[in-house]
Amino acid sequence: MTLISVERMKLFSTRSPWWCIVTALGLTIGFAAMFASQVQDTAPMSVGMTQRGAQFGLIVVMVMAALAVTTEYRFGTIRATFQAMPNRVAVMLAKTSVVAVLAFLIGELAAFGSWAAGWLLTSDQALVLDTAAEWRQVAGVGLVFAGAAVFALSVGALVRQTAGAVTLVMIWVLLAESLIQLLPTIGDDIYQWLPFAAAFRFMRGGGDSMMSQPVSEMPIGPWASLVYFLAITLVLLVVALVTVRKRDA
């Protein structure tokens, strides 16, 4: 518990997490509000559509998570940290927990905020949360944010440089996965098993939106997709922990 409260103190005694929280919520909810205000009768509103801006928040949260480690290397505070607490694995796990919990909370706030913005602006009865799939599409966002934060934090711990880690994470999430999908013949088959494809399947799949993939077309169900995504994240975290433990600080 001491380690967790130390990491919490460290995270919140600088300004960047506050900026990240404000930016993540502002962008996500702002996009949802804009979307809802422009929606036409020809394209009916759905719960899934209120969450289309989640990717904004996701990227901001991942940048925050990567920074939580890379700034420590940048400013040498990682050495002060390991000097005070030589058990590196415990320190990194505490940091991961703090960042993951924060990412989860930001995700939930962003998702319910977006949903509320859609509801207030359209008063569309389709936005009532009355199916399990709709609940998953809103409440599940926090889980994906938490997993994505662990993913970014692990990359940060491996790369140790802000620019490198942020670039890698952004390119992977925004570009690499969808580019792989464009490969002829094999592209689609590979894409289905990429981590963020699985995460988005969980976050957006099913429900009654025209734009989301029906569950029947998924290689594995939405919850299995989440487990798959989290498992990949966990493997990456273990690799990062082993590396941090072995390497000179």
């Binding site: 460290k10 005694s13 600088t14 300004r15 960047s16 700034t71 420590e72 400013f75 040498g76 505070t77 050495r79 002060a80 000097q83």
Partner: peptide
């Protein structure tokens, strides 16, 4: 060891 091991915004 190094007096600079402090976060500049802290």
């Amino acid at each position: 060891v190094d007096a600079k091991w402090v976060h500049p915004n802290r």
